[in-house]
């Protein structure tokens, strides 16, 4: 018994309106600067930003590195911190959700550290690691681990209790229930954490780079500010936004593929 797939047409307005929205956003922005409503010292027009981008692709001046180097530094830092927060946060959260001992031991410390904004760690990390890669990876790790732990914990806790009873009547051990029932049940929540943690990591990366860095997209934005170059600032902002969006789309695609078997 298979159902026939029916293609649902997207209404034209759902294509035209978003395109019109984006075009008018850039047109109004361009107009505001070109016709002098906003002075060029305060905001750069999209065309200027584009020119700066083309220049920055090959010219390390005035901030010390070409655009690709800044982007690569940021992506490296974010990726390392993000992966570390997943690798440690998700198993920790899952175990906290199922094993009372783990919960009792780790939760109080976690709850104590959780409300401290990751950026507040910056001075300490500068003492410990300087302004290089390690310090920023640490900040990003702190930022990313919180949603990983919480979502995994809640995911395990939300496992249908009757399903757990069912598994017990079928002779499942505590460990089998954890690995074969609680973890699969928690997966949708865990994948939610992948997206939330990424957003946290990316935001805090830029924050960390604004304060302590020598390359990176956040550093590019800071330098643009110090040099009174709004075009560089906007270029940095757009690069951060675009790279973040691209990573988000990739994770979304991975999630869809892995979760294909889970339907509720």
């Amino acid at each position: 018994m298979a159902y026939q797939e029916v293609k649902v047409k997207t209404p034209l307005s759902m294509i035209v309106l978003p395109v019109a929205s984006i075009c008018s956003f850039f047109l109004i922005w361009e107009g505001l600067v070109d016709f002098g409503f906003v002075p060029e010292t305060l905001l750069a027009a999209p065309s200027q930003v584009f020119n700066t981008m083309v220049v920055k692709l090959s010219d390390p001046n005035p901030d010390g590195a070409v655009l690709a180097v800044h982007a690569w530094t940021s992506i490296q830092e974010a990726f390392l911190g993000y992966i570390l927060s997943l690798v440690i946060g998700i198993p920790l959260g899952l175990a906290m959700g199922w094993f009372k001992v783990v919960e009792g031991l780790t939760r109080p410390v976690f709850e104590m550290i959780r409300p401290i904004p990751p950026i507040a760690w910056i001075p300490l990390t500068v003492f410990w690691f300087g302004i290089g890669l390690t310090g920023k990876v640490f900040i990003i790790w702190i930022a990313g681990i919180v949603p990983c732990v919480i979502n995994s914990y809640v995911g395990v806790r939300m496992t249908n209790p009757v399903l757990i009873q069912m598994a017990r009547t079928y002779g499942a051990t505590n460990w089998q229930i954890f690995t074969q029932l609680c973890i699969p049940s928690a997966l949708p929540m865990v994948f939610g954490a992948l997206q939330i943690a990424l957003a946290y990591c990316w935001t805090n990366l830029v924050g960390a780079e604004l304060l302590a860095a020598d390359t990176g997209l956040g550093y590019l934005i800071t330098m643009g500010g110090r040099l009174m170059r709004p075009d560089i600032v906007v270029l940095g902002m757009i690069s951060v936004g675009l790279s973040g969006a691209v990573i988000g789309v990739i994770i979304d695609a991975v999630e869809k593929k892995l979760l294909a078997g889970i339907r509720r």
Partner: peptide, 8 residues
């Protein structure tokens, strides 16, 4: 306790 000798 629960066990596999009783199928539910």
């Amino acid at each position: 306790g629960p066990g596999p000798d009783r199928g539910m």
